[in-house]
């Protein structure tokens, strides 16, 4: 008996990564690189905390809701060693995606009609929110 091939599973994983609904990235802007911050991170908007040191720029986008979006944003801030996630701008976007839809259809000329279906793509509008901000570090007094 031939063992099942892993190729379809790998292809599915790659495709799933390409369609992830939460994406985030960051780039350090400070000279020194701090280790991953495992402590608490304060999410802040509208103003910078006093005596904050900028560590890098962070962006995140999600269509799964604000909780997942901010969580991904904070994770990037932790990766830069920051303890303050400063949100500069929040931008909503409505994107149009093509969603595969399968519909059962009558099978003409076939005796057994149980498995006849057709697949097609239907447009679907998705609300995506994008955060852009910075990773900051505030040392305890």
């Amino acid at each position: 008996m031939r063992p099942p091939s892993l190729a379809p599973l790998l292809a599915l994983l790659v495709a799933a990564q390409g369609c992830a609904s939460v994406r985030a990235s960051s780039v350090p802007t400070a000279d020194d690189v701090l280790p991953y911050h495992r402590g608490a991170v304060t999410v802040r908007a509208l103003s910078d905390p006093p005596n904050a040191r900028e560590l890098g720029a962070v962006e995140a986008s999600s269509e799964e809701g604000l909780d997942a979006l901010v969580e991904a944003f904070v994770e990037q801030v932790r990766g830069l060693g920051g303890n303050v996630a400063r949100i500069d701008t929040v931008t909503p976007v409505v994107e149009t995606r093509m969603r595969p839809t399968t519909q059962s259809v009558p099978c003409f000329g076939i005796r057994f009609q149980a498995g006849c279906s057709q697949s097609y793509l239907t447009p679907e509008e998705v609300a995506v929110v994008r955060l852009v901000g910075r990773a900051l570090r505030v040392e305890a007094p």
Partner: peptide
């Protein structure tokens, strides 16, 4: 605000 044909969203 962002708006498309059948969806509008604001943050």
């Amino acid at each position: 605000i962002a708006r498309a044909h059948s969806t509008a969203t604001a943050t």
